[in-house]
Structure formats: C-alpha cells, structure tokens
Amino acid sequence: MSATLHRIDAGPAPSLDPMLRLVAHDMNAVNSVILDRMQSDVPLIPELAGHLIAGGGKRMRPMLTLACARLLDYPGTRHHKLAAAVEFIHTATLLHDDVVDGSDLRRGRRTANIIWGNPASVLVGDFLFSRSFELMVEDGSLKVLRILSNASAVIAEGEVNQLTAQRQVETSEERYLEIIGAKTAALFAAACRIAAVVAERPEAEELALDAYGRNLGIAFQLVDDAIDYSSDEATMGKGVGDDFRDGKVTLPVILAHARGPAADKAFWRDAMMGHRISDADLRHATGLLNSTGAIEDTLERARHYGQRAIDALGGFGASAAKAALTEAVAFAVARAY
C-alpha cells in the first residue's frame, strides 16, 4: 500500500471543511446565481426546485469547480455561473432519478415527486436543465458548452443503461463500472475540467482535472453502493436498503452473486426481481455480502479509484487547494467507516 493510499484509510477523520473554507466566498456567489436562476413566474417551479436545492446537500460538484479554479489560481468570476450550471444539472438528474426510482426520501426529507407528483418533478427537472444551458451559453465558451452538454448526454445514457440492467443480477462488473462512470462520474469530471478551460490552461491540465473528477466520482458511487447495506439513513440521506428493495444491481450484489453457491444465487435472483424484500431478507442479503467479502472488496475498489484521483493531481504544485482536493477524496471514501 502506498503512503498516499494509506492516508485515505488512516489518521484523523477527513472532512470537506478545508474545501468549504477554501471556496466559501465563491460559493456565496454561486448560491446567489442559483437562487436567482431558479425563479420563475410559475410559482410551483421555485417552490419545488427550492425544496431540493435547500435540502441539505453538500453541493460537492460545484465546490469542485470552484476548488479546481483555485488550484489553477484563476482570478476571474466566470466559474460562478458555471458552477451553478453544474448544480442545476445535478439537481435536475436527482428530480428525474427520484421519479424513475419511485423514491420517497432524499436526505431525510420527502422527495419532490411524493409532495408534488411525478409530472411536476419531471417538468421542473427539465426547467433546471434549461437554466443550466442558459448559463453555459452566457459564458460564451463553446468548449465549456461542449464539455457540459456532453456530460449531460452521458449522464442520461448512464441512467438508461442502469434502467436496462435493473434486476439483471448477472450484470458484469465491467458493465456496472461503465454505468456509474456515466451516471455519476461524468459530471464530477466535467465540473473539474471546466475550471481549466476558464483558466485557459493547457489541455494536459484539463485532462488531469478530468481524471481527478472521474475517479473521485467512481469512488464516491462505490462507497454509496456499499453503505446502502451497512450504514444508516442519517449518513446516506436515503432509506437503508433502498437499492436492495428497488432491485438495483450494484457492485456488492454483483460480487456476492458471482461468489455464492447455487442457493445464494437463487436468493439474489429472487431479491432483485422484488420477491424477497422484507427486513429479514435485507438482513440475509447483508450477511451474504459480508461473508463473501463483497462489501469490503467494493470499498477496496473505491480506495483504488480514490488513489487514482489523488495521483491525477500529481503534476500540480503544493497548495491549500491541492490539499483540500486531496482530502475531499479521503472524505468520499471515509464515509463508509
């Protein structure tokens, strides 16, 4: 184990506080843009959007845009609107995801689709997507527009790919990594990369920040997959075992199914088809995940991608921004412990 990887697993509990402090001033400006651009003459739009935007999320993706801009010593303000665009893309996908998943809780609060219904959630999600593209166009950079619009398309492809893989317990690990690389990591990557574009830095630095964000996003999702079976609602911001009851074939399930005897494989098939969703079934599933090492191996893969994210920053000089970005990786992984 390398010295850097060891920092992910040991020492004081990592936190997002260094990043929060680093970008606090810029984040105030981003929040102002968000509040301004979610307004509409149709009262339901700001009401519904505000419910989710004010719902206690960490706003990690726009913070990454701001922190990467600080890493590059960017002196301007273009990244404020673009970070808001990133948050709108993320919020729109959450609204749509909750409808697709039939979720009733997010970050401990009732989801918008439960309060206002599925049609309103989908349409307000569309509104936020449109606002994000307005902000990109206002920035005026075709390169930024290309990066963020491509990320939006890739996210949608990832969600459709996941939908077609739902309840398919034989899904391969390779396909699953492809799905989360699209639905989760693509926006992390784009959020980081656009900072290098506005700072007019060489393509090598763009690609380095893209790699940082992409690997961080994969690590982040893999930890989410693991803690769905091993954490609590306060930590996760959603119900414990939601993935299990929704028939979501995540990496822990893929690994446990592949490693188990015929009886266990039959259990996983029944569970993912929605026939074994009681609390007792969830406890049995968690036992199988632990006995096959599926949870720990999922977290080991998360640490691997976290290390790749940290390595991607290797070409940048030491700074408070680099330290904060490095600790953000450690925080993403440490959520599972």
Rank of each mutant, 00 (worst) to 15 (best):
H6G: 13
H6N: 15
R7M: 13
I8Q: 15
S15T: 08
S15H: 05
P18E: 13
L20M: 06
R21I: 08
A24F: 11
H25Q: 15
D26P: 03
M27Q: 07
V30L: 02
R37P: 01
M38D: 01
Q39K: 14
P43F: 04
P43Y: 09
L44V: 15
I45N: 02
A49D: 08
A49P: 00
H51K: 12
H51G: 09
I53L: 15
G55P: 12
G55E: 07
G56P: 04
R59W: 06
R59Y: 08
P62Y: 07
A67W: 00
R70A: 06
L72V: 00
Y74N: 14
G76Y: 05
T77H: 08
T77Y: 10
K81E: 14
F88D: 00
H90K: 01
T91W: 03
T91M: 07
D101W: 03
G102I: 13
D104S: 13
L105A: 11
R107L: 12
R109P: 03
A112P: 06
W116K: 00
P119C: 03
L123H: 00
G125S: 12
F129Y: 13
S132G: 12
F133H: 14
F133Q: 05
E134W: 04
L135M: 10
L135P: 01
E138W: 07
S141P: 02
K143G: 12
I147W: 08
A153I: 11
G158M: 02
E159A: 01
V160Y: 07
V160R: 10
Q162A: 13
L163C: 02
E174W: 08
I180W: 01
A186N: 03
A189C: 05
A189D: 10
A190N: 05
A191T: 00
C192M: 13
I194V: 14
I194T: 10
A196K: 02
V197F: 02
V197A: 10
V198T: 06
E200I: 09
E200M: 08
E203D: 14
E205Y: 02
E205I: 00
A208T: 07
D210R: 15
Y212P: 06
Y212L: 01
L216A: 04
G217L: 03
F220I: 04
L222C: 09
D224S: 06
A226Q: 03
A226G: 06
Y229Q: 04
S231G: 15
D232A: 02
D232M: 13
D232G: 07
A234F: 12
T235C: 09
M236W: 05
G237M: 04
V240A: 10
V240F: 03
V240N: 03
D242F: 15
D246C: 07
T250P: 11
L251I: 10
L251R: 08
P252F: 05
I254P: 05
A256P: 09
H257Q: 08
H257V: 08
H257S: 11
G260L: 14
F267H: 01
G274Q: 06
H275E: 15
L282E: 07
R283Y: 07
A285F: 06
L289T: 04
N290H: 15
D297T: 12
R301L: 15
R301Q: 12
R303Q: 14
Y305V: 12
I310M: 08
D311K: 10
L313I: 14
G314C: 11
G315E: 08
G317F: 11
A318S: 15
S319K: 03
L325T: 00
T326L: 05
E327L: 05
A328C: 05
A330Q: 11
A330E: 09
A330R: 12
R335S: 02
